Computed example of a mutant assay.
Amino acid sequence: MKFQLAINLERMDDSTDMKAVRDHTLEMVKMADAAGFEIAWAAEHHAMEMTIAPNPFQILTWWGEHAKNIRLGVGVVNAAYWHPINLAGEAAFLDLVSDGRLEFGIGSGAYQREFDRMKPGLDQKDSWRYMQEMLPVVKELWKGDYTHNGEFWHFPTATSCPKPVQKDVPIWVAARAPITFDYAVEHNCNILSWPLTMPFSEAETYRARLDDAIAKHDGEYTGNWAVMRHTAVYDNEADRKAAMDAIRVQLSQFGNLMMKSGDVVNGFPDRVPLDSLEGNARVDPELLEENLMFGSPEQVITKLKKYEEIGVDGFLYYASMGMDMDQQKRSLKLFIDQVMPEFTEKELAHAG
């Protein structure tokens, strides 16, 4: 199993200095790079401080200049917000300046609030149609001159300038629903899955959907499957409590965005009152600690082995959860020093 880092520039309130956020994020990526993480992922979101990511290609170009080995993952671009020519060129330019380290992720978006501003009139539930039209168009533009007359985009002959350095850019599709697993397998794309705060059984459900999709296509699938989880590794009670407090605050804001149950003021979502969500896996402390990649190094190793057993190829260590920046670094260091060797040393022994 390979390890990957997903991290956002995030502020939970305006008391946090933006330059400190900038510096911290880069330090985390450099730590992951030095430790041999496979990919660093940057998201795309707009007008929200908890995920400051107006252009993932800018973020990844910046990271790539400082972290020289780690691959650079777009995790993920929202197809509905882009024109294919623009998207193909931005992605290819990142591949060029990073000497072929682009991992191109595409998806359907998450928050209706964001669609209401970026693509008014589009229901988030229908945005998968944009993704499924966009991806083959981008791939054609990377090859050369191409004319398109589709449902959402129309343009005369054009090409991507520049072209990617890689002959075959790795493509990732964000998938939870069966229809998206089917699409990813049909087109032999890698798959990113995020079970949110649901139990491990949710990952098992995704595995079943992947297996069903592979069976529909005669078993001919060579892509990788990666699963993302919020991660906090701790070795003392103070850090354990701080991690739990942080994730509950962040999830109260996430609940606002997902359910449109509060306002967003100057980019900061109101917090959904936790007492209205108690007992829900979204905020219940015991369930969160069980479901997420939270725990001591030994507990995290045990959890990761369960993902490895169901065929997860890559684990995305999701670092962004409103936790104190120093604690984020302590957590990542514990993961690097005490968790990763259990898996990387085994891989080396198997290779030998």
Rank of each mutant, 00 (worst) to 15 (best):
F254I: 13
D211E: 02
V283S: 00
P269Q: 03
E278G: 10
K260T: 05
N236A: 08
P269S: 08
H217L: 11
L274M: 13
K216R: 10
A232C: 15
V283E: 01
A242D: 11
R271F: 01
V233W: 02
S252M: 07
V272E: 04
D212T: 03
M258K: 05
G255R: 01
M228T: 07
G255K: 04
K241G: 10
A281V: 05
G262Y: 12
D263A: 14
D275R: 02
V233K: 02
T222L: 06
D235F: 13
M244W: 00
V249M: 07
N224P: 00
A243R: 05
Y234F: 15
Q250C: 02
V249P: 07
S276E: 12
S261L: 13
N266W: 04
M244N: 00
L251W: 14
Y234T: 04
A243I: 01
G255M: 09
A242H: 08
M258R: 12
Y234L: 01
D263E: 15
M228I: 05
R240K: 13
K260I: 02
H217Y: 14
V249E: 09
A215I: 05
P269R: 01
Y221I: 00
D263R: 15
V265D: 05
D284P: 01
D270K: 09
V265R: 07
M259V: 05
E237I: 06
L257Y: 01
D212G: 08
K241A: 15
I214S: 06
Q250R: 06
L257H: 02
R248S: 13
L257T: 00
Y221A: 08
I247D: 00
Q253W: 03
A242V: 01
L257F: 04
D270L: 07
W225S: 13
A213S: 14
S276T: 07
V265G: 02
S276D: 10
L251S: 10
N256T: 14
Y234W: 14
A246G: 08
Q253C: 03
K260L: 07
N256S: 08
S252A: 09
M259G: 13
A215M: 09
L251N: 15
R271W: 00
F268W: 14
V272W: 08
D239H: 10
D245R: 02
N256F: 06
P273T: 08
G255F: 03
A226R: 12
Y234Q: 06
D211F: 00
A213R: 05
F268T: 07
A238G: 02
G262W: 12
A281L: 06
D218R: 13
E278K: 15
N280L: 15
D212I: 01
D245I: 06
K241E: 15
D211Y: 01
I247K: 02
N224Q: 13
D211R: 00
A226H: 09
D284T: 09
T231M: 13
K241Y: 10
P273F: 09
I247N: 01
R282S: 11
A213Y: 06
Q253R: 10
Y234H: 08
K260G: 09
E278Y: 10
H217C: 08
A242W: 04
H217G: 06
A213N: 07
T222N: 13
V265S: 04
V272G: 00
G223F: 10
M259I: 05
K260Y: 06
